[in-house]
Computed example of a mutant assay.
Amino acid sequence: MEAFIRFTNQTQGRERLFRATQYTCMLLRYLLEPKADKEKVVMKLKKLESSVSTGRKWFRLGNVVHAVQATEQSIHTTDLVPRLCLTLANLNRVVYFICDTVLWVRSVGLASGINKEKWRTWAARHYYYFLLLNLVRDLYELSLQMEQVARDRANREQSPSQDPLGYSVADEETEWLQSFLLLLFRSLRKHPPLLLDTVKNLCDILNPLAQLGIYKSNAGIIGLGGLVSSLVGIVTVAWPHMKLKTH
């Protein structure tokens, strides 16, 4: 109970719960829409989804300051590739939160002359760039992990006969693929924060891909991806050691 109270006392924790609720409503609405006797339930889910989405905008107000701070921190990352990816990603995140704030101002009626569709497209584009750059960073970190696991395995295995799987990687092309997948699995299992961050970014990128017309997904796929991403976000907020750290 104390852990739950500590989690909900954080703004990020409450935002993750709201986000999970929003995408759960989207997923359930998609699943129930084809059923003729579920119109009232679908309407209630749609209203709840809209209300939760509006509530999340309040939690995001001021996030542009955190994004600027994250940009300043990423500049000091020692490794060149993560430094470049994270700095550019956080700059796009700054622009995204600026667009998001402008859209909030438009939604509450403080400035009715704002072109909603244009700002929404800009927000989706910069959010897409932010996620894409984070995925590049994830792939780079994964390649380092796979290289390390391969080195450790090579040190343990002095000859092909000592291979725990009983075959040499060079025997057949299919065995090369199996070896690669096994290496990938071992690398991700050894580094759970990298696995969670990669899954989160892959799930999150579905939404801007659909908004920008790059890859169309239905509401069910986007809802499922958003729910999985939100659950990962809840895990990283509740257990900070599960969040991928910069070096």
Rank of each mutant, 00 (worst) to 15 (best):
A111W: 13
G13S: 03
L183C: 13
L181W: 09
K190T: 01
E33Y: 01
L244T: 10
L80D: 06
R120K: 15
E33R: 12
L142Y: 02
V81A: 09
Q145V: 07
R137N: 14
K57R: 14
L184Q: 14
T174R: 10
N201F: 12
Q158V: 08
T174A: 09
T101H: 15
V235A: 15
R106K: 15
R106P: 02
R93E: 02
W122K: 15
H76G: 03
R56F: 00
E117Y: 09
L80W: 09
S53N: 12
H241L: 04
A238D: 05
R14H: 00
V95G: 04
L142N: 07
H76T: 14
H247Y: 06
Q10H: 01
R151L: 08
V81E: 01
T198Q: 04
N134D: 10
A124I: 03
Y129M: 13
L196V: 01
A111Q: 12
A154D: 15
I5C: 08
K47Y: 01
F7H: 05
N92A: 06
R137I: 01
D163G: 05
W119S: 04
I5R: 11
Y128A: 05
S143Q: 11
E172R: 14
L206E: 11
L28D: 00
V232H: 08
K47F: 00
V81D: 00
Y140Q: 06
G166T: 01
R16M: 04
Q69S: 12
K35V: 10
L80Q: 09
V228H: 04
D138F: 11
L195R: 08
N92L: 04
A124C: 07
V235R: 08
T246S: 14
L45E: 03
L84Q: 11
